[in-house]
């Protein structure tokens, strides 16, 4: 566990030593707040729920998470430090987990700042606290899946921009996969499978304050699968 923490700290330091973390955090907080208070019109709607606020997060994540993960391996591959890292006394899985943990901590810091939203609007109405807890749980699990996908794409790439674009595109596809059902009449089993695979379908349950094991397992499996694949890519690179 210690090597994972060491790598995570190194990753986190590199985020905060560059402008990336500050730009990402500021944009994320600013955009979500402007959306909720000015565009969505929380006060004018007179509606005691943060669904409007959390409803934007999956769409912001499509851009934000790849922006965080794009440099995790692409930059190392380009500058040649990946080979150096692979010779260190860390396993491939530890390296992958460390980088994932570093990125996840950055996302958790962002989400910690968003706690100001429920805290400042709570005096206005009787909010459903369970719903807010569900929304945070869903957002963290969604972030895990998105970060691991981003890291996998980055591990295959030598270019940050292409890693960002491909990750965003893939994340967009699996987030809104269920839209296929709105524009085509798929056979029942296929339609249900498409719905199940879509990230947003499960997020909907969390947003209502319902923690459904199907959603948890789906997000967890995506996370594990992409982290595992990232580690395999490193193994292949090491031996090739």
């Amino acid at each position: 566990m210690k090597p994972v923490v060491i790598i995570a700290r190194r990753e986190l330091h590199s985020f905060f030593n560059s402008a990336v973390a500050y730009i990402a955090v500021t944009l994320f907080l600013g955009l979500t707040a402007v959306w909720f208070f000015a565009i969505y019109g929380f006060a004018a709607r007179d509606f005691a729920s943060l669904r409007g606020y959390f409803g934007l997060m999956p769409f912001l994540f499509i851009v934000l998470l790849p922006a965080i993960t794009m440099r995790s391996w692409a930059e190392e591959n380009k500058s040649g430090t990946a080979e150096l890292l692979l010779t260190m006394p860390f396993s491939e899985l530890q390296l992958v987990l460390g980088k994932f943990l570093g990125a996840l901590v950055l996302v958790l810091i962002m989400l910690a700042f968003t706690l100001a939203v429920p805290l400042t609007v709570l005096p206005l109405a009787r909010f459903e606290i369970g719903e807010i807890v569900g929304q945070y749980v869903g957002t963290v699990l969604l972030a895990c899946a998105g970060l691991s996908l981003g890291q996998f794409v980055s591990s295959l790439s030598r270019n940050q921009i292409s890693a960002f674009l491909i990750s965003s595109l893939l994340l967009l596809l699996i987030s809104v996969l269920h839209v296929v059902n709105a524009v085509s009449a798929l056979p029942r089993v296929l339609a249900l499978t498409v719905n199940h695979l879509s990230l947003l379908t499960h997020y909907e349950s969390f947003a209502r304050g319902l923690i459904d094991s199907r959603g948890v397992v789906h997000y967890a499996l995506l996370t594990v699968a992409f982290l595992y694949l990232s580690a395999r890519v490193l193994v292949i690179k090491k031996w090739s």
Partner: peptide, 14 residues
Amino acid sequence: VAGFAQLVNVYLIP
């Protein structure tokens, strides 16, 4: 209170 929430989240925190 709504204005304060907006001020804190849109301006102060970012």
